[in-house]
């Protein structure tokens, strides 16, 4: 680096400066909304993304003043941890340059980083926020996790108590053997 001539040193500096100016302009144009999570953390979120949240739209319909003022829009059932993930998801999926393969890779990584509890929490948050794309992605992902699993796994996964008596369960399985259903 030290051996580089004067001209090559200044060149990238100039372009970086221009880039920075461009960024400033776009940032000025992009309006933001203030969102407050259930654990009282406030986020400044690009309006283009925040307006994808059904809960935000609904809030603004009732109190339109919130879009301009400094009042934060409260998200009662979303913790900051989940909002960060939701924003990460939407920023990626909103990014114009993201190709189909990038998105697929991103989705896979996004899912891999979540444990089952976090996945369910995120689904609840997505449901509350009313964000269709993420909601569909999460329900489909959970369906994929359980589709080939046995009944016991599913009970544990959802925290469901088995309310069949052992006799009822055996009778049910017997009754349905005709359809070629394999239970385990």
């Amino acid at each position: 680096m030290a051996e580089e001539t004067e001209s090559t040193k200044t060149e990238p500096l100039k372009t970086a400066e221009e880039e920075f100016k461009k960024l400033e302009i776009t940032e000025e144009e992009e309006s933001e909304l203030k969102l407050e999570t259930s654990d009282h953390v406030t986020f400044m979120v690009e309006a283009s993304i925040a307006m994808k949240f059904g809960a935000v739209q609904q809030y603004l319909e009732v109190s339109p003043a919130a879009s301009a003022s400094a009042t934060a829009i409260p998200l009662h059932n979303v913790a900051s941890r989940e909002l960060i993930l939701i924003l990460e998801y939407y920023r990626m999926h909103d990014w114009v340059d993201a190709g189909e393969r990038d998105l697929k890779e991103f989705d896979e990584r996004f899912l891999k980083d979540l444990n089952y509890e976090e996945l369910k929490e995120l689904l609840l948050a997505a449901n509350y926020l009313n964000v269709e794309k993420l909601f569909n992605f999460l329900t489909k992902s959970i369906a994929n996790i359980i589709r080939n699993k046995d009944v016991e796994f599913v009970r544990t996964f959802f925290g469901i108590d088995n309310d069949y008596t052992p006799e009822e369960e055996a009778a049910y399985r017997e009754e349905n053997a005709w359809a070629g259903v394999k239970f385990v």
């Binding site: 909601f135 329900t139 489909k140 959970i142 369906a143 359980i146 589709r147 080939n148 046995d150 009944v151 599913v154 009970r155 469901i160 108590d161 088995n162 309310d163 069949y164 369960e169 049910y172 399985r173 349905n176 359809a179 259903v181 394999k182 239970f183």
Partner: peptide, 20 residues
Amino acid sequence: EILLRLPVKSLLRFKSVCKS
């Protein structure tokens, strides 16, 4: 919403998860 996204084969099996 999750069950709607499962194939029939899984749904027949999951009828025995619980009564609901």
